[in-house]
Design a protein around this nucleic acid. Structure first.
Length: 429
RNA sequence: GGAGACGUGGCAGAGUGGUCGAAUGCAUCGGUCUUGAAAACCGAAGUGCCUUCACGGGUACCGUGGGUUCGAAUCCCACCGUCUCCUCCA
């Protein structure tokens, strides 16, 4: 969540930069709430001090004195209890309001209301040309017998898929290639839980606002677990409520996982094919840094995602999202979009963001700066980042479409051939 | 799913209803000693919040939430979690 102190220091500036995203409700109440929380706390603590003082006199006191003070103490205790409730309420109201306010876009994020205002940073590679009519991955995959949507729909409904035969092998090859790629860079691999508690989802900003985007499971009504919408949830929360040492930063992780999204509100979008599924696979990069390190780490993640696509021989471009198109928790974000011949356009295949201290403040991730001399230094809130490296299903889509040949077969990208046991082509059997 | 045990500071581990933010040990940091290091000795050291320009002061926190009490780490209840044994199982 945002730092309430920013608001108190200069409310107008904070509101102004926050509203680069568009209109946001409830900002007016924020300062008032914070003030009332504070005054409730101050009066509460004054009473507590008084109580402690009286209490100290009771310890060795004679029975007469104790009897005499007892009623005074009792009423003081009552008073404290109700003040406590008041303070807790004020605190809770403030917290819940803060939880539903998005992150403040960074100053270097372009203005704009929606994706039309996003800024293309660069293009890498050249979209291939074909001397035959290109087909989309659905037609290609079904014709090759490596993708089966119909039977998946019979069993699970729309937005699910069976991979089959060489489709499974290709999917695995893509996955292993990406895992090996990140491992070779020295990042630490994590295989995370796919079900998480609500707190973890709150930590990254998925809850409370976006519950309808997730699949919720329950052992009992009060004890839900959520299927992760991305490995970001478990991995970013890896250090929740911990204090790291500055010398260990930046920490770089990656995780392969299944991801589950209800895609509520996406009705009608990408209904055909594997672009938008309820269940998909992804390799995710997650980093913990100081504020100073964040920009370099963000650039490095973008570079990695781009490099993976280059190695796969896939044309792509890098786009910086404008303020209005930023996700809830992000303060700066680059999308990597891969060329899809069937759509004659670039489609998102990776999203790399820095969240500043927004997520870390929610999740309680801090680090202790290196101290100078004997001075003790307070923990400071860490910076978190993450980026896809990459979405596996969409990579498969891109390969099927970009590597299609006139006879309907698929050439396997060179870097994947070793992962396909030497197979260089997928043909109809 | 059944039975039992337990949840205290970075870790280990004490703790009588008031003098406990909490002994002690280890680890950590600073210093003395040493050519340097080790050992030894001395000292420092939790987190959040409120207040203060600052020094500082205050308050809360012993799994979580309630309760009893003038007063709870300590007593009672519920919940959560961990461990051991049994059962089951990829």
């Amino acid at each position: 969540m945002i730092d309430i102190k920013l608001f108190e220091k200069d409310p107008d500036a904070a509101v102004q930069s926050l509203e680069k995203r568009g209109e946001i409700e409830g900002l007016d109440d924020l300062c008032a709430l914070s003030k009332s929380r504070r005054s409730a706390l101050t009066t509460l603590q004054a009473k507590q001090e008084k109580r402690n003082e009286l209490n100290g006199m009771m310890k060795g006191a004679t029975p007469e004195v104790i009897a005499e003070k007892r009623s005074e103490m009792k009423s003081l205790s009552q008073e404290i209890k109700s003040l406590q409730t008041e303070a807790d309420d004020a605190n809770e109201r403030l917290q819940s309001m803060l939880l539903s306010i998005p992150n403040i876009p960074r100053a270097d994020v372009p203005e704009g209301a929606d994706e039309d205002a996003n800024v293309e940073i660069k293009r890498v590679g050249t979209p291939p040309e074909y001397n035959f009519e290109v087909r989309d991955h659905t037609d290609i995959g079904e014709a090759l017998g490596i993708i089966d949507f119909e039977r998946a729909a019979k069993i699970s409904g729309s937005r699910f898929v069976f991979l089959k035969g060489a489709g499974c092998a290709l999917n695995r090859a893509i996955t292993h290639f990406m895992i090996d790629y990140h491992a070779s860079k020295g990042d630490t691999e994590l295989a995370p839980p796919l079900l998480v508690r609500p707190e973890a989802a709150v930590g990254v900003g998925q809850l409370p606002k976006f519950e309808d985007g997730m699949f919720k499971t329950a052992r009992s009504i009060d004890d839900p677990l959520y299927l992760i919408s991305t490995a970001e949830l478990p991995v970013t929360n890896y250090y929740a409520n911990e204090i790291l040492d500055a010398t260990e930063l930046p920490k770089r992780f990656f995780a392969y996982s299944q991801c589950f999204r209800s895609e509520a509100g996406a009705a009608g979008r990408d209904t055909r094919g594997m672009i938008r599924q309820h269940q998909f696979e992804k390799v995710e990069m997650v980093r913990f840094t100081t504020a100073e390190q964040a920009d370099a780490e963000l650039d490095a993640m973008v570079e990695r995602a781009s490099d993976i696509l280059s190695q796969l021989g896939l044309a792509h471009r890098i786009v910086q999202l404008c303020a209005g198109d930023l996700s809830f928790s992000a303060e700066k974000c680059f999308d990597i979009e891969v060329w899809l011949p069937s759509q004659n356009t670039y489609r998102e295949i990776s999203s790399c963001s820095t969240f500043g201290t927004y997520q870390a403040r929610r999740a309680g991730i801090r680090y202790r700066p290196v101290s100078e001399g004997n001075k003790k230094v307070k923990p400071v809130v860490a910076t978190t980042l993450n980026g896809s490296g990459l979405a596996i299903g969409r990579t498969m889509v891109a390969i099927l479409e970009n590597y299609q040949q006139a006879d309907g077969s698929i050439k396997i990208p060179d870097v994947l051939v070793p992962y396909m046991k030497g197979q260089t082509v997928i043909q109809a059997s």
